[in-house]
């Protein structure tokens, strides 16, 4: 029993728990910036969609996991899990809705090599 209490004490000790949580939050923040840069850089709508889905998964979920490490109580962890679950359920659904609407409306995707690979092929030709 004492051993279990020790383990629980180590897990809930604020020191390293807060550090890990803050580190995960920082990773999430940096990855959202990368994803936003991708939304600006990519050449057409469908490729931008891929960059935006980095935000929905890696960015938001790492941030929420990090905040769960920082949380002072179990109720807050429960709420964070609810938010994460909701983002995971609705993120791809709205991404699919946008993509399907664009495809149905006849927005043509760029197919084939773009940028460096295309330039390489033109050199060889």
């Amino acid at each position: 029993m004492e051993f279990i209490n020790d383990v629980i004490g180590v897990i809930t000790a604020p020191g390293w728990r807060h550090f890990v949580g803050a580190l995960l939050c920082a990773i999430g923040g940096v990855s959202t910036v990368i994803a936003a840069a991708g939304v600006l850089r990519f050449p057409d709508f469908y490729t931008r969609l891929h960059a935006a889905s980095v935000t929905d998964t890696l960015g938001a979920l790492t941030l929420i996991l990090g905040m769960a490490f920082l949380a002072p109580g179990l109720l807050i962890v429960f709420k964070l899990i609810l938010i994460g679950l909701f983002l995971v359920l609705t993120g791809p659904t709205s991404a699919h809705a946008i993509a399907n609407a664009a495809y149905t409306a006849g927005l043509e995707p760029i197919i084939g090599k773009i940028g460096l690979q295309k330039a390489k092929e033109e050199d060889e030709a």
Partner: peptide, 15 residues
């Protein structure tokens, strides 16, 4: 995808 975003030259190949 993060590698593809951070590359200075685009070399994606949408299909």
């Amino acid at each position: 995808v993060i590698k593809a975003i951070l590359k200075p030259d685009m070399d994606i190949q949408p299909t």
